[in-house]
Design a protein around this nucleic acid. Sequence first.
DNA 1: TTGTAGGCGTTATCAG
DNA 2: CTGATAACGCCTACAA
Lengths: 349, 349
Amino acid sequence: MLFTVKDVARLAGASKTTVSRVMNKNPKVKFETKTRVLQAVKELGYSPNSIARALRTKKSDVVGVIIPRGVEYVFSDPFFPEIIKGITSVLNLHNLNLHLIMSNSESEQREIYSGLLRSRRIDGVILICSRFDDKQYILKLRKVPLPCVLISRFPLEKINYVGCDNKQGAYNAVEHLINLGHRRVGFISGSFDFIGGVDRFEGYKIALKKHNLEYDNELVAKGDWTREGGYQAMCELLNGVKVPTAVFAANDQMAVGAVKAIKEKGLQISKDIAIVGFSDTQFASYVEPPLTTVREPTYEEGTLAAEMLVKLINGQEVKPPQVILPTKLIIRESCGYNVKKMAKVVIKQ
Amino acid sequence: MLFTVKDVARLAGASKTTVSRVMNKNPKVKFETKTRVLQAVKELGYSPNSIARALRTKKSDVVGVIIPRGVEYVFSDPFFPEIIKGITSVLNLHNLNLHLIMSNSESEQREIYSGLLRSRRIDGVILICSRFDDKQYILKLRKVPLPCVLISRFPLEKINYVGCDNKQGAYNAVEHLINLGHRRVGFISGSFDFIGGVDRFEGYKIALKKHNLEYDNELVAKGDWTREGGYQAMCELLNGVKVPTAVFAANDQMAVGAVKAIKEKGLQISKDIAIVGFSDTQFASYVEPPLTTVREPTYEEGTLAAEMLVKLINGQEVKPPQVILPTKLIIRESCGYNVKKMAKVVIKQ
DNA sequence: TTGTAGGCGTTATCAG
DNA sequence: CTGATAACGCCTACAA
């Protein structure tokens, strides 16, 4: 039922070598012979055994995409599908296959790296959303060595990555709030194990500094990227000594949680407290009021990373080894304009 | 830098066969020898070449997961990550790898099936969210033959699938509306190329019949699973001869679109028109009012499908070859209780 | 309990 | 332009 070169060769009256040449589009085959071979291929429904080919050529035509534990949680909404879509669109173009590697625990992750990377099963790796902890694994990849592209900046020399400008994006969000007149701008952070979490925090601090506002620990609450985390963090801020008139949340989910907390206190979004999120996930425009947020070019991050990796695999040079894509502030309705008045209305609970 | 059995054998002073036996946990190796071999393995950091092994054993330990074009769009929100998470949790347990196959166009899909399935690269396939069109491909899989499990019911004999009870779920949603007193219950359908779209429509019709309500084409509008589609469909209904007092939308996205249309008409959700969605996607509880909807056990669909496939691959029998998981109606705030009054309030525009 | 030899299906080498 | 042959790294009869 399953045929091999040998069968095709026999049927076409040619040698295995010739058949192989035809399959690999080697031009040095007489037209007539080629036709005969292709006819036989069609007749038998032959398709090369990619495993055997991989063994011989030492190329599997497979790319590994690693989703570290927790990422699908952090970026639950459209991030994951979008980025994968971006990656596949490029891989399909190059006839490369995608191995999805998703560890559910730390130990699983460890095992995956140690085994899989040595198994010659993949030609390269895309690492989505690296955490600082991933450094050890990245270094392992280098040892093998195996081409690797990260999605998200990583503080390491001579590394390839595509990311969005978390720092600038956060900066823009906060500056937007400041330009609206806010002077007590709070921050709901994500966890700091993800690089992006730290960068967004940085952007927040830089914006304050640029506008001569003093950084104040009382205005910062730590979330964990989740809606619940955002809710809790906002409660902290609301019960604190200084209640902010505006809050920048490090992602949309936390922003939505914060919105809930604010509403529960009987305060109004935008009128009493302004909110900005990050990522422009799908539900950002659904919630009430629609969320002002920082849009991230997710799909593009996927395509660029894949294109980089393809080049690396082919031994080509990757022009700028590190790419940071711009974000865009999407202004909706969660930030008010009558801030002067607002500042007086908000009182410590 | 990369070692083979040969290297290990030499270092351990054993034969390739013995090393192979140790790697495959064959018990017929003297303890002492095994220790020596393992020591050598560790020393060299040896890990078997899975490609060579696959060629020899004709098993790749890879499972293909096929996302047909458009699915990631239909089930944009948590569906995709959740189902993949479910699948990987099981595959990781069995040391199986996951090949993600995502076609961006119909022709790509065709090519993928014809080539990949013959390439011996995968031991089995999980097909997510089959459409009626997929029948041709499913039959091809059988020809190869390649074990295959669908996620979503499929009308074909002797096929393995896991799905949620779309029909019953839709029935429950509509019955809920009827029990609240609604007699003009509208339906916003999805496209009918997906099996689930048809089943949900069926459930709607059965519920009407069971409660002696006549099916009325005027109360049905066709959407396309998207928010915009839901919006358009709802506009149609609102401008129709008979405006429904309640609407069941075939998924949450369209329900959200419908909500928008209703609000724009100056009508109130729940008070004027009740809305129920389907799937309980993440944003269902974020929108205003929080959406009453039918919850689908996504993660479980993934795990069950993977478990089924693993059994099929191992030649074991799959006990019930077809599993339909129950759904659960999640009652939130998008359906009112004062329906009698409402029915009078709603007037044709 | 261990080792030898052969072959999985392909491609690369080299000779014609 | 074409073909015979070897080798990729592993597993598995079979023999010892």
